[in-house]
């Protein structure tokens, strides 16, 4: 009995400039349930980031409708309500910070929403604790690592108490350790606080732990389902020009060589599949 948070209905969006038109997304429909951990996968220009910007009203669809908890994003009076419900973390953590002290930066969102002072303090405490950065509260963000900065950026969005957290390629600029930090934080949020998470990425291995994966190519949704369903569809993966996780790629090679195994997602699964071969 799940409840739909976001529903996208036949949405098209085209970037128009004086010289040319570029398709962002075309005739797209999907829905995201509360508490889901969803990954949007695709190459650059596949439309995944365009879709993300449509979800919180940064862009309004040319055709079709986007609903956030039943509210149409095209309703201008509700723009800020939608943006506070659908929080977005961007790629470069340095360009998302507005204050030179961490707690001030996190308070910025709730301050903008006109939240009471005591409540802001509570939210800042809570947000910092959630991303495990409490001891950095009164420091400046400049000396932090990329992963820590991005966790602060997540906390800054959490302080607005969103329903949905979108990470728009938020791990793309980080080193492997930073990526892990951010992904662990997001996973924990999803499991423990039942936060709906949309992870936009072009790393397939990041999508492995999602409940649901949507694969985009040239503005269209070409495949949606559990990671296992999606990654077993080699045709779709190839069409989206994605790089399979190593284990899956190895599994694929085995399957193509005529060996009957289930397509593995992780190294462990691959090892098990190989061991169970007679």
């Amino acid at each position: 009995m799940s409840e739909t948070v976001i529903s996208v209905e036949n949405v098209s969006y085209t970037y128009k400039s004086s010289q040319n038109e570029t398709v962002g997304v075309k005739n797209l429909s999907l829905s995201i349930e509360k508490g889901d951990f969803v990954a949007f996968l695709g190459h650059n220009g596949s439309g995944k980031s365009t879709l993300a910007k449509l979800l919180n009203g940064f862009l309004l669809p040319d055709e079709g409708k986007v609903f956030v908890e039943g509210t149409d994003t095209a309703d201008e009076a509700k723009t800020y309500e939608i943006r506070s419900k659908v929080g977005m973390v961007f790629q470069n953590p340095d360009n998302q910070m507005v204050a030179s002290v961490i707690e001030d930066d996190i308070a910025f969102g709730p301050e903008n929403l006109g939240v009471e002072r005591e409540e802001i303090v509570r939210r800042v405490d809570w947000a910092l604790e959630t991303v495990k950065m409490s001891e950095y509260r009164t420091r400046t963000p400049f000396k932090l690592s990329g992963g820590q900065k991005q966790r602060i950026a997540i906390a800054a969005i959490l302080a607005m108490m969103p329903e949905v957290l979108i990470l728009d390629e938020s791990t793309a600029m980080l080193d492997p350790e930073g990526r892990k930090e951010v992904l662990d934080t997001v996973k924990r949020l999803n499991k423990e606080k039942n936060m709906t998470v949309i992870l936009i990425t072009h790393y397939m291995d990041e999508a492995l732990e999602a409940d649901k994966v949507f694969v985009f190519s040239e503005g269209s949704l070409i495949k949606g389902g559990t990671p296992r369903e999606v990654f077993s569809d080699f045709g779709a993966v190839e069409k989206a020009k994605l790089l399979l996780p190593v284990a899956t790629a190895a599994g694929k090679a085995l399957v193509e060589a005529g060996i009957k195994i289930n397509v593995p997602l992780t190294d462990e699964e691959l090892a098990e599949e190989i061991c169970s071969l007679k």
Partner: peptide, 26 residues
């Protein structure tokens, strides 16, 4: 380029959402 992203980040955090902005520190 930074300004562009910052503008989006400000929007994402509802800058100007209400004229009755509050302050954490008094």
């Amino acid at each position: 380029r930074r300004a562009d992203e910052l503008a989006m980040a400000l929007d994402a955090r509802c800058y100007n959402a209400t004229p009755n902005r509050t302050k954490m520190k008094k």
